[in-house]
């Protein structure tokens, strides 16, 4: 992973603020091409801020965000999307009064309509037959699980190289959570790199290759998923629930 050519995304000493509030403090991440990397951490630790810093909705005060070998921290959000970064937003954030199909179209906003668009629609429909069934439904009336499928489908419509997911399992029933993670693995197998914020550390460390643990804006732990699963402080802080429920 130290080979620069294998890196898709890199945070170099990134500091992000909201006004005076210092949220990300000298944060470093490296995401290799083809990896699934998970970002764990408690509430308000800066996970969503990490995602917003990647998408360019907030700009870092210091440090550099490097995508595909080039600094992107000064680029407009639209340009980042064009270069191949797509989000699956926290709480899904579909356009509630647009149809499912229109939401998918919005995912492909920076791309031309044409045969590739049709292929991508078919790919999403193949991954989520339920989305095809509901393509004409107003997105706000879908169930939470269905909305999550559309949110993931919408990200795929950008043909991204990197998908940034913010808590894809939030608010979903346990059996559906498994399905979402299986889908994430499938998307990754098809060649898309995934950076995924999760509260469900148990599941996240099962599907991810590596993970970072963020605490009040600082990376306090990182390593392979395997190693983190065995780490006693992780077991105590994030996997406690697993020991109770399993």
């Amino acid at each position: 992973m130290s080979e620069a050519a294998d890196l898709l995304l890199e945070f170099k000493d990134v500091d992000t603020y909201y006004g005076d509030l210092h949220v990300l403090k000298q944060v470093n991440y490296t995401i290799g091409r083809g990896e699934i990397v998970s970002l764990l951490g408690g509430n308000a630790s800066g996970k969503s801020t990490t995602m917003k810093t990647i998408m360019g909705v907030v700009r870092p005060a210091r440090g550099s965000v490097v995508f595909d070998g080039k600094p992107i921290e000064r680029l407009a959000t639209a340009e980042r999307v064009r270069r191949g970064i797509a989000p699956v937003l926290e709480a899904r954030r579909l356009f509630p009064r647009m149809t499912v199909f229109e939401n998918l179209e919005m995912g492909a906003y920076t791309r031309k309509r044409g045969p590739e668009f049709e292929q991508d629609i078919e790919r999403v429909y193949a991954l989520f037959p339920r989305v095809k069934e509901r393509h004409a439904q107003i997105a706000g009336t879908l169930s939470g699980g269905e909305q999550q499928m559309v949110a993931i489908g919408r990200a795929l419509m950008a043909r991204p190289r990197l998908i940034c997911m913010d808590e894809p399992s939030m608010g979903l029933a346990p059996n559906f959570v498994e399905q979402v993670f299986a889908t994430i693995q499938e998307i990754n197998r098809q060649g898309t790199t995934i950076f995924m914020v999760e509260q469900n550390a148990n599941m996240a460390l099962t599907v991810a290759h590596r993970a970072y643990v963020l605490q009040t804006g600082q990376v306090v732990l990182s390593g392979t998923a395997e190693a983190l699963r065995k780490n006693p402080s992780i077991r105590e802080a994030y996997l406690g629930e697993m020991q109770v429920t399993v």
Binding site: M55, V57, A76, T77, A78, V81, R82, P87, L89, R93, L94, F95, P96, R97, M98, E102, E105, M106, G107, Y109, T110, R154, A158
Partner: peptide, 19 residues
């Protein structure tokens, strides 16, 4: 469509690449 998306959720629309 970008107008409608922006009206419904400006931040999400921006992250779809809408200027």
């Amino acid at each position: 469509k970008a107008m409608r998306a922006t009206a419904q959720d400006p931040e999400a629309a921006r992250m779809m690449g809408v200027e």
